[in-house]
Write a protein that binds this DNA or RNA. Structure first.
Length: 502
RNA sequence: GGCCUGUUCGUCUAGGGGUUAGGACACGUCCCUUUCACGGAUGAAACACGGGUUCGAUUCCCGUACAGGCUACCA
């Protein structure tokens, strides 16, 4: 049977980077085994629905290159893939479970249950407490029918049998055992007619022929309910295998990574910018911060998984090849932004100038720079060894696009002297005439000239750099001069001399 | 509180009854370079604790501690 896995996020806001990793592992597993990867939208909670969240999820998956074979926005033969569009399906199945004696009607109001929780410390609706509550197990058949006929609100709950051992063979954690006494009678169908996650999940996985459920560790406890549901429906034979992923933890402190951590630690925790309704609900994304999607994928892949060797840089195809569930670690992984930056730097370094130029172009245009693609490629070559983020090309390297804003005058003061001033005055008029205007030739001629004047290259070159870039950081001086061109180089020298030769 | 899951350098991790406990990020030093980076070399840095089992445990078992998750008509 062909492998089928799904990524099933809830559209309650921006897709967390941990969600992207879950999607990635599902994708890798599907590709590795020649199976399908589906996107299912789990929007059964109408109260938590957030407009735009679904589009965000789809756009994020596209950005990182994890294209589903089926799902909302991608078609497929097992649709609809949005649970709110499948509402009609769930009631029939819930009723079927009631008939089979694995579920029951419950009429207790949320307020009544809330009151119980208030007064009793650890109240749960389960096999021990249900006998004292209002449900089809305690009420007579007539009373139940009356309630139903009268249109009283009800939910359908899972009827957990006593003295059962529920065994799960998790692909990552091995055997996990629960006692049914510890498992509560979860609501399966809510009073509004929508299923809860638990019911919808099982029915959809069954109907969509899902073979492997790869999801976060937060789902491990409820897997006991899920197994009971498969048994209740008589679907044990086709029950998917489970793999519960370790969680991604906060960069500092305790707990799992949350959306607030982005602002708190000054780093993105979402793939894309998210602009919610309120000011508070705005979060930066990896894309807008200047990450390459390949770098994000590579970083995420290694957060909780490792290959058989010590390889660190992987294309998506290589990840597919190397991936195995057996090498997923069990413990939570701290979100390491430094490592994420390192990956991005590595990917920028490895990228060819033409491709890099296409990434820099929109950034340059946004700044109002009008330059040719050829020039952007030169900028790419000059800067790629010294940037971490895409915007660094136009920010750190702004002087390649516009005049120097400020000179590192401290360094200039230190180096400035009568001799040097004289050299610069001459350089100002002669440098542009050096032919050919090429890096190696310029370097040779300038150094020669400086020495003829009785100075050392070290006295002059740093200042030449400041004249062109304003700062002591940056690409090789003569490479910059060539990129800027002789006219611009001359202009910058002139301005530099005018500024300091007073 | 109850249930479930974890615990190797600061971080991500490899390993697994006998190893100089390996790699990567970050950090230090040096080399390259009259800049900054890149690159290269090198250094410091870890098996949570206590009991077993064993000739021998970081590795297997039990307990403790700590951490995480779940405990909604949320997912």
């Amino acid at each position: 049977m062909s492998v089928r896995v799904r990524f099933a996020p809830s559209p309650t806001g921006a897709l967390h980077i941990g969600g992207v990793r879950t999607a990635l592992y599902n994708y890798l597993f599907a590709r590795k085994h020649g199976g399908q990867f589906l996107l299912r939208i789990e929007d059964t909670d109408q109260n938590r629905f957030v407009p735009g969240a679904e589009d965000y999820i789809i756009e994020a998956l596209k950005w990182v290159g994890l294209i589903p074979d089926e799902g909302v926005g991608f078609g497929g033969d097992y649709g609809p893939y949005r649970q709110s569009d499948r509402k009609a399906i769930y009631l029939d199945y819930a009723l079927q479970l009631v008939e089979r004696g694995h579920a029951y009607y419950a009429f207790d109001t949320p307020e009544a249950l809330e009151a119980r929780r208030e007064s009793e410390d650890n109240f749960t609706y389960n096999q021990f407490t249900r006998t004292g509550l209002s449900n089809s197990l305690t009420l007579s058949a007539e009373a139940v029918q009356q309630h139903l006929d009268a249109g009283l609100p009800y939910v359908i709950r899972l009827k957990v049998a006593p003295n059962q051992e529920i065994r799960i063979h998790d692909l990552i954690r091995g055997e996990v055992v629960f006692q049914s006494a510890d498992v509560d009678d979860k609501v399966l169908l809510k009073a509004d007619g929508m299923p809860t996650y638990h019911l919808a999940n099982i029915i959809d996985d069954h109907l969509m022929k899902i073979t492997h459920v790869i999801r976060g560790e937060e789902w491990l406890p409820s897997t006991a309910h899920h197994v009971l549901l498969y048994q209740g429906f008589g679907w044990e034979d086709t029950m998917p295998q489970f793999a519960h992923l370790p969680l991604i933890m906060k960069p500092v402190g305790n707990g799992k990574l949350s959306k607030r951590d982005g602002a708190k630690f000054g780093m993105p925790v979402f793939p894309l910018n998210w602009e919610g309704a309120t000011e508070e609900d705005h979060f930066p994304g990896f894309r807008e911060a200047g990450f390459l999607p390949e770098a994000v994928v590579n970083f995420l892949a290694l957060l909780g998984w490792h290959p058989e060797n010590d390889q660190e840089i992987f294309t998506l195809e290589q990840l597919v090849e190397a991936f195995s569930v057996g090498h997923i670690s069990k413990s939570g992984a701290r979100f390491d932004y430094e490592k994420a930056k390192w990956f991005n730097q590595k990917y920028i370094q490895a990228m060819d100038a033409a491709t890099l130029a296409t990434h820099i172009q929109p950034l340059a245009e946004a700044k109002g720079y009008e330059v040719s693609v050829e020039y952007l490629q030169q900028v790419a070559v000059l800067m790629k060894e010294r940037v971490t983020f895409l915007p660094d090309f136009v920010e750190q390297g702004y002087y390649l696009f516009e005049p120097v804003r400020t000179y590192d005058s401290e360094t200039v003061q230190k180096k400035w002297s009568e001799t040097v001033a004289g050299i610069f005055v001459e350089l100002q008029s002669s440098l542009g005439n050096i032919v050919p205007f090429e890096s190696a030739n310029l370097e040779e001629k300038v150094k020669q000239f400086v020495q003829e004047k009785g100075a050392k290259p070290g006295d002059v070159l740093p200042l030449l750099r400041i004249a062109l870039a304003g700062t002591m950081k940056g690409p090789a001086v003569f490479d910059m001069a060539v990129a800027l061109g002789s006219a611009e180089t001359m202009g910058r020298l002139k301005r530099f001399v005018e500024t300091f030769n007073k």
